[in-house]
Amino acid sequence: MSDYNFAYLDEQTKRMIRRAILKGLAVPGYQVPFASREMPMPYGWGTGGVQVSAATLTPEDTFKVIDQGADDTTNAVSIRKFFERTAGVATTEETEKASVIQTRHRIPEAELTEDQILVYQVPIPEPLRFLEPRETETRKMHALQEYGLMHVKLYEDISQHGAIATSYAYPVKVSDRYVMDPSPIPKFDNPKMEMAAIQLFGAGREQRIYAVPPYTKVVSLDFEDYPFEASKADHPCDLCAAEDSYLDEVILDDAGNRMFVCSDTDYCRSRREAGHVGRLGEEAAA
């Protein structure tokens, strides 16, 4: 163990964050203000998620970090190392083995269980922000459930693009009460939010924490004649042939060749280990 207090933050701070988390769980989708601390990383790198993880972790936990579904990108690697060093907790890349998963912009493909906590990094927690810049006004709108403006955004999408073009950070209504920004996850992940695990959302710069308790109703907003659709690239994964996972598009050369791969690296790896091979799977392995 190093000279840091367990999980970097001091005990009083963690206590303050836990109170915000509990309040958030008690009022699903409500943005609880908290005294966000300065963290040793820039805003936008997950300072909110890190603080929520620090307040949630216990020494017995196994921690996993994903960034856009991947375990091996800069953001994921640096946050994982941060907690290895300051908390000394076990880390893993396997979704099933983790008890706390911090994520940026994805929900893992594997179904989460009641023993797991999913921590989201949130850049802008206020779903109404781009339509109504005044915080006093948006708070009042949440308090009075005046959510007509959210549909104005979707209306604008359809009138400009012929379909709801919002493909990430797609607004949801939680437990028939609060409209919530699910953080910039693809709308493909929205239906998964009615899950067994606890979901916690931390926005460091904006100083807000909110939460979705297990098995809570989460409905994506839509119009009667333009229903919500959880879209993804119409393609199987080129490495593991999965038809049901969210895909990243990778440009291979300047001759128009491209490949689609699972954005969840752990899911893709486990499928390839189980013997599934996609279109380009053999070449990649070689």
């Binding site: 403006l149 104005v152 209306y155 604008e156 009138s159 009667e224």
Partner: peptide, 19 residues
């Protein structure tokens, strides 16, 4: 917001959900 969205805002605010 477009002219149509401006006019539609009140309708959506009172619960109209058919584009």
């Amino acid at each position: 917001v477009s002219a149509g969205g401006n006019i539609g805002e009140r309708l959506m605010a009172v619960g109209d959900r058919h584009y």
